[in-house]
């Protein structure tokens, strides 16, 4: 537990330092928040444009869709706050050689990669998502209180799933000579999880629940609150899936670091 306390303190310190540096340039930070918000507004508009015309989509009401989409912004926002380094890992750490320095500190390399830099402006997504969820919830009668209460925790698990999947993809840079890595293309696939999974056919459902488990990050967590009891096993599996992928991520990073140790790249 000493290690947990050590890492928690370190995380707080990293975050404080980063925020301080970031807020030193207020106008610039404001631009970043604005840009980030514009992006969120644009993708939210797509949902509003499409689904406001229909009372139902495959058995899901407009407000349920907004609820679902709003919730998807929570794990997505948490993920974005922490993933700044992941996205540039190959470039900044492997090509520019900063990874050596990571290995020379007595702190878990993965911890350093995740928490050395933050994309603060993405907290905006969490906020926007929370507002959307709250609005949709006010229009939806009979939501499950337990489901609502668990939403924040499940959003964290969702973020763990995103971080782990992208952690694994980023780790591929240890083996594949490519400055950009595999993460950017898969990034687009997060859009899959933002709509009711019932609109897809079996193949896609299986894909989203196994290899790229994005349905566990954003769709299944809403099903308890929305009273879709048929998804209950999936809802309760969310923490296990998150842990599984977190372990997988850790194991693959270990191998990646070992590979780095033997080839130096």
């Amino acid at each position: 537990m000493r290690s947990l306390r050590f890492h928690a303190r370190l995380l707080a310190l990293y975050f404080a330092q980063y925020a301080k540096a970031r807020l030193a340039y207020r106008a610039d930070f404001a631009t970043a928040v604005l840009a980030s918000f514009l992006g969120t507004a644009a993708s939210f508009s797509v949902v509003l444009l499409l689904f406001s015309r229909f009372p139902h989509l495959a058995g899901w009401s407009f407000h349920e869709i907004v609820f679902l989409y709003g919730f998807s912004l929570l794990p997505y926002g948490f993920f974005n706050v922490l993933s700044g380094n992941l996205y540039e890992f190959a470039d900044r750490y492997l090509v520019e050689g900063r990874f050596d320095r990571i290995l020379l500190r007595p702190v878990s390399p993965l911890f350093q990669i995740f928490f050395e830099s933050f994309r603060l402006e993405s907290l905006q997504e969490v906020l926007t998502g929370a507002v959307a969820v709250a609005w949709a919830a006010s229009k939806l009668p009979g939501l499950s209180p337990l489901g609502l209460a668990l939403l924040p925790l499940w959003a964290v698990f969702g973020a763990v799933i995103y971080l782990s999947v992208f952690g694994i993809l980023t780790a591929s840079s240890f083996w594949i000579e490519d400055r950009v890595g595999l993460a950017p293309p898969v990034f687009n696939l997060m859009a899959f999880g933002r709509y009711p999974i019932t609109i897809y056919d079996l193949k896609v459902k299986v894909l989203l629940s196994t290899v790229i488990p994005f349905a566990f990050a954003s769709f299944y967590p809403t099903t308890l609150a929305l009273g879709r009891t048929s998804f209950a096993p999936f809802f309760w599996a969310v923490p296990a899936v998150a842990l599984l992928f977190a372990f997988l991520n850790r194991a693959i990073w270990r191998r990646g670091i070992a590979k780095y140790g033997s080839t130096g790249s």
Partner: peptide
């Protein structure tokens, strides 16, 4: 801006 990637993503 210094948040170039943020702007591009938006």
């Amino acid at each position: 801006t210094t948040s170039i990637l943020g702007v591009l993503r938006a």
